[in-house]
């Protein structure tokens, strides 16, 4: 009996080591380049350099986030400070430290705030990707690093945005990766980015057709969409600007990134 127990512990630890290794492997190497944003933040920023970096191949899963919460109890839903997460934070879990039967551990975690997502990535020595990094990788189809002029690809992405949130999310990683080896930037969940609060888009989109409200914004920056009909990127910007750092929603998850030199 004791032997059995020991064996179980060994296997458990071995499993942890394996998990740690696959986490290292779980990142894709993204060669830097130029991002041409659909919605240049200013006329000077039609072409934005993106440095080479690493990005998680998959969004962080429920099971992974559960481990994090167990190790860092200040991020449990019953311990967290309200300024860091709203009342819906991890509210879909059965208890503060268990998912329950209804949630598959391999689904992407949702109902997490920006502070919590950021803390998770930092606990792994990583960080959240920036909006530019995220958009740079998200512009790739399975064949091309920049597929954003590809109408068919664009329409496929749009398809997800026009459907309501499913009651059960599919498991992470069931469709092919994109050019960089990154999975599911589209079609699964929205994702936090480090600088989600950087878009100086008015909450009334129509105001942005002209110059930004001088009363609200310091500094210049006429917002000009280069591709007015790219509804998907419009919707991502709209979604991000609706968020506050302590917000959580049932379709919002995240993945981590890392600077090139660290890996």
């Amino acid at each position: 009996m004791r032997l059995l127990l020991l064996a179980a512990i060994c296997i458990g630890q071995f499993g942890l080591i394996l998990a740690a290794q696959s986490a290292e492997k779980g990142m894709a190497y993204v060669v830097g380049g130029i991002l041409k944003p659909f919605y240049p933040p200013s006329p000077k920023e039609r072409e934005i350099p993106v440095h080479t970096f690493w990005m998680n191949k998959f969004p962080v899963t429920e099971a992974q986030f559960l481990q994090f919460v167990k190790k860092n109890p200040q991020w449990r839903r019953d311990h967290i400070k309200r300024i860091f997460a709203d009342k819906q934070y991890l509210s879909h879990w059965v208890t503060p430290i268990s998912l329950g039967n209804k949630i598959n551990g391999e689904q992407p975690v949702t109902q997490v705030s920006w502070f919590a997502a950021k803390a998770y990535c930092e606990s792994e020595g990583k960080r959240l990707p920036t909006e530019n990094e995220w958009e740079y990788v998200a512009g790739a189809s399975d064949k091309k690093p920049d597929a954003r002029k590809d109408l068919e690809w664009r329409n496929r992405i749009l398809d997800w945005y026009t459907k309501p949130t499913p009651s059960v999310f599919p498991k992470v990683g069931q469709s092919p990766p994109n050019y960089w080896g990154v999975y599911y930037l589209h079609g699964l969940v929205w994702e936090w980015v480090l600088d989600f609060n950087s878009s100086l888009v008015s909450s009334d989109n129509r105001e942005n057709a002209t110059s930004p409200d001088k009363n609200r914004f310091c500094g210049a920056g006429a917002l000009v969409a280069t591709e007015k009909d790219d509804y998907a990127s419009f919707m991502r910007i709209a979604f991000r600007t609706s968020l506050k750092a302590h917000y959580t929603t049932s379709s919002l998850g995240f993945r981590c990134a890392q600077d090139e030199k660290k890996s």
């Binding site: 709203d86 819906q88 949130t165 008015s202 909450s203 009334d204 129509r206 105001e207 979604f239 600007t241 609706s242 968020l243 506050k244 917000y247 959580t248 929603t249 049932s250 379709s251 919002l252």
Partner: peptide, 15 residues
């Protein structure tokens, strides 16, 4: 009023 309320009512899911 500005935006007919649009600026004051921009709301994320679950809020």
């Amino acid at each position: 009023g500005p935006g007919g309320g649009a600026t004051s009512s921009f709301t994320a899911p679950g809020h």
